[in-house]
Write a protein that binds this DNA or RNA. Structure first.
Lengths: 211, 211
DNA sequence: AAAAAAATAACATATTTATGCGATGAAGGC
DNA sequence: GCCTTCATCGCATAAATATGTTATTTTTTT
């Protein structure tokens, strides 16, 4: 038997969700709340396996509630965020705050039960459009920027040494070129990156994933 | 009508998948292949909306095939990876290489059709256990390192200025302290981070997410 | 073949960093 | 009250960096 609590400000939806879930084989609703102002207490007094947490609620927002819950040490309860929109900011926040899944409200009731089941068993159900957001964020994080500031191969090489913390002298020795050549390259790099110090170049290299 | 191509080395599974999909309303199979050695050509000669791509195939692995396809400029075709296991290395690779979804082979046939439909419409269907992997990676990436090298509040502040590319003089001005005080802080920072130059400190700050 | 871009190098110089040593006052723990 | 940590500041100096100018040789492009 999977125990579920529902946080949803719309009374109508809250009740119909409750009836749906409670009326289904294998699920019991142990609490329904119109806001998550006392979420930490609620979860202690009515422990549930899975929470359905609306993102947009008056008072404490769903994500804030989630953060409180996790901050209180509760990492066991699975939390499924419910929302009308799949804007990336919220998705991102929810994930970072420790949500176990992210569903659009338009999810069909039968699916909803399935998703609760999934979450209970360690899965992270998410609407496929939300998953798209997540993957997009991933590829943004991990894709090299297309704009590599037109650094030449040699310049990129030098920049990599800078990132590794090498001094001009060390770079020269490693690349078998004169230190003045290293200077020349670095001067060019600074021009292209619009910086004027080693540490700025390093910072930019990290930020823009040039290296 | 959604056109689908199937890459799967197991002849039995390949055929039954083909029959299932081709026999379903709204789906047509335009190609079935036992390997993805010629995936780029295949996709030109038998354009499909969605590819089902087995991860483990003799010859070119599914992910390698995916990379080739994307490298050839094809970013339009939706690609669903199929696999028996949900190990994080592959998931990660697939996402980075531009997969649109990641499904376990044990996915029920009815779901599979749904997932193909989802992918075609821009979604990123993934088995919920795979989604768990993805979220886990996310939180790993974004969690601050616990070890902040015991920097004091003031030292962290100075380090942030370094990351922003400020010179000692600028930091002193901004923090309303003497330049020698800035030096003192930085000396301490270097000791704690085990580095001995500004750019190394900046690099470490980025790598270890101190800032 | 001519032109453009990239890699190499030298020289000079002002500025910035790195490092060492020492010192003072304020805050907090015991 | 004593001790420790933190934040503050000064002075000195060697090393490294930033910047400008110029020039030669390869490599690439047109």
């Amino acid at each position: 038997m999977i125990t579920v609590s529902i946080y949803e400000d719309n009374a109508q939806l809250r009740e119909s969700l409750g009836i749906l879930i409670d009326g289904s084989e294998g699920f019991t609703v142990v609490g329904t709340f119109p806001n998550c102002n006392n979420i930490v207490d609620d979860c202690m007094q009515h422990p549930a396996d899975v929470l359905l947490l609306d993102i947009d609620m008056p008072g404490l927002k769903g994500i804030e509630g989630l953060k409180l819950l996790r901050a209180s040490g509760n990492t066991e309860t699975k939390v499924l965020m419910l929302t009308v929109f799949d804007d990336d900011k919220s998705v991102f926040d929810a994930i970072q705050s420790g949500a176990n899944g992210y569903l659009l409200k338009k999810t069909a009731p039968s699916k909803l039960l399935e998703h609760i089941y999934d979450a209970y068993h360690g899965g992270s159900p998410m609407t496929s459009s939300v998953a798209t957001q997540v993957l997009k964020m991933f590829s943004e994080i991990y894709s090299r920027k297309k704009d590599n500031y037109n650094l030449t191969a040699r310049e990129r090489e030098v920049l990599e040494y800078l990132v590794k913390g090498y001094s001009y002298k060390m770079i020269a020795a490693d690349m078998f070129i004169a230190i003045d050549t290293v200077r020349s390259h670095i001067k060019k790099i600074y021009e292209k990156l619009h910086v004027n110090s080693k540490s700025e170049a390093v910072a930019k290299a990290f930020k823009d994933r040039i290296v």
